[in-house]
Design a binder for these strands. Sequence first.
DNA 1: CCAGAAGGTGCAAAGGTTTGCAGCAGAAGG
DNA 2: CCTTCTGCTGCAAACCTTTGCACCTTCTGG
Lengths: 350, 350
Amino acid sequence: MPATIRDVARASGVHISTVSRTFSAPHLVNPDTRNRVLACAEHLGYRPNRAARALITGRTHNIGLIVADIANPFFPPLIKAAESQARHRDYHIFVTDTNEDPAVEEDLVHALAKQVDGILLCSPRMNNSLIEQLSREVPLVVINRHITGLPTVVMDVATGTRHAIDHLTTLGHTHIALLGGPRGSWTNREIRRAATTATRTTDTQLTILGPNPPTEHGGHHQAENITRAGATAVLCYNDLIAIGLIEGLHQQGLHVPTDISVIGIDDITLSRLTRPKLTTVANPTAAAGRAAVDMLLQHDGHWSGRIGRGGLRTATGDRRTTAQVTLQTELVVRDSTGPAPGAVVSEDKE
Amino acid sequence: MPATIRDVARASGVHISTVSRTFSAPHLVNPDTRNRVLACAEHLGYRPNRAARALITGRTHNIGLIVADIANPFFPPLIKAAESQARHRDYHIFVTDTNEDPAVEEDLVHALAKQVDGILLCSPRMNNSLIEQLSREVPLVVINRHITGLPTVVMDVATGTRHAIDHLTTLGHTHIALLGGPRGSWTNREIRRAATTATRTTDTQLTILGPNPPTEHGGHHQAENITRAGATAVLCYNDLIAIGLIEGLHQQGLHVPTDISVIGIDDITLSRLTRPKLTTVANPTAAAGRAAVDMLLQHDGHWSGRIGRGGLRTATGDRRTTAQVTLQTELVVRDSTGPAPGAVVSEDKE
DNA sequence: CCAGAAGGTGCAAAGGTTTGCAGCAGAAGG
DNA sequence: CCTTCTGCTGCAAACCTTTGCACCTTCTGG
């Protein structure tokens, strides 16, 4: 039933190769012929069969996107941006979910490898050497993790963390807690490192609690430990944890920000809708999604140089130039942070 | 570089057809041979080329999923469930986003048609006749819309609406406002119809305001109109609108639920995290995602009956039996609803 | 001991497209 | 008028897999 290139060829009185060229290399065919072919194709409802095209070109025009948890509100904006960017370049995106499981990650890379031109690996939980190995099997762009020698897109969460700590110390907080994220997260390590460094210079005490699952439950469970530790301010691995924490503190009868200040990281939509509105380090997730797609496709352009008949893919040893993109974060001060209880803060806001 | 069926055949000393059968019809090949082949395949890192397979079988083992807005928190749980269900059946999912634009919907169906075995059309905004027409080009399962003659998965939002209205009238509310959703939404029409019917039997006044975009802004903007109308309770098209509305009311100095009650629909995760926690009609979105995948794949099974050599797809006129699934909704009472101001309610709660 | 079945394997065509090469016509240059 | 070039088109192989059919061997039952 579906019209093939052959039907179009017959209808327009040309050879199938001419039809093929009309679509994949229009400049090679006479304008008159081209228009005739296009008219016939339109009329027959012809659409190129991507499987057949993929079979011979070796390019599927598909991209894989692997995320830890689609339902985690951090990811949808990224997915959305990536999908949109890809579509503009005539690519489609497979989205898959690993349930935060490193083993599933590896399986998925393999499963997708043969039917995509490249994979966007988002906030991976597996270790670097495995990622490097996988990147030899299929073009990979890693998001939210820096790996030397691989194309990566990361957010400058270290600077964001520093700003957050500064913000808190300025408000007079001298004992800050850090609620860490999941094991295996590069971002988590960055935050811990940055927080440790930032508090060393001042007289601030830092209490680190974790790892925690990156969900509101993760934050909720730690509420007691926070108060027990005596911190007056908390920086959280992400907004979800922060929101769960606020909820937990609230149940203990503590008020945010009067009794205790809370800062999240990410700036998911949700953070503007809770009460109090969350102070947070905004991550440009949409930009990250777009950048990753661009990097993958730009690379893909490089790779697409055919080496003679059938030389569809480059040799594995190919050392291509890898780009590393770092995106800026921004501290967004809202209502969940305030002066430390009892602290005297000079509020010269000029 | 990537190993093909031919490499495996050579390595294990059998014909390529035997290798093929080892993977696609294992019971037809001698266990000894099979193991030898599998060992060689494993050793060579062979993975079947899906494009080639798709080319000859006509089945891509891919599913398209078209949603209005990935970033709308209603969808991710559905996407996640669908993806997981599909993966268990060795299918992958293309996710695309229409930005609430009906024209994009149509384009996407066409773009996806040739590289998927079927499409899940989620909360479509286009009209029924167009959907029916598209369903003749590619297997379609429609979610959140009832169309006679097509396989559909809907939530029984009418019953949910009735329960919500009952809940409000029981609390003594006599003037209820309904904040409608976007134009073209089947769910929106259902809610309006059910609300109108439910209020007619009692002495309740119903004020309908809309259409509104299904976002928190949509609700926020209507806050003034609600108070102006004088309603003491509001049922919203979805939780996002409800949350935006509460925010807007709050800015007017009104307190929820003391001054005014608000009910949402969907029960997105967020609804449990706002303050006050939202009373809402819970929709089983994950179940819907799974059901839709099942329906599509079951149908697909039907269709896969090859008619002789190369008869890969059924004729278009094929009148297959279509299933219609309706999932139950549930009223979840939380903190955003309470007695109408001044109303005397008998609180016999045992 | 023979007919027939059953189990396992090989053969080759087919699926829709891309692309290097060859061929052809007409134009440009000498 | 002959060459050379350019612009366009046709030819056919190749991409990798699936599958109907035919063939061969071994086993079963009579």
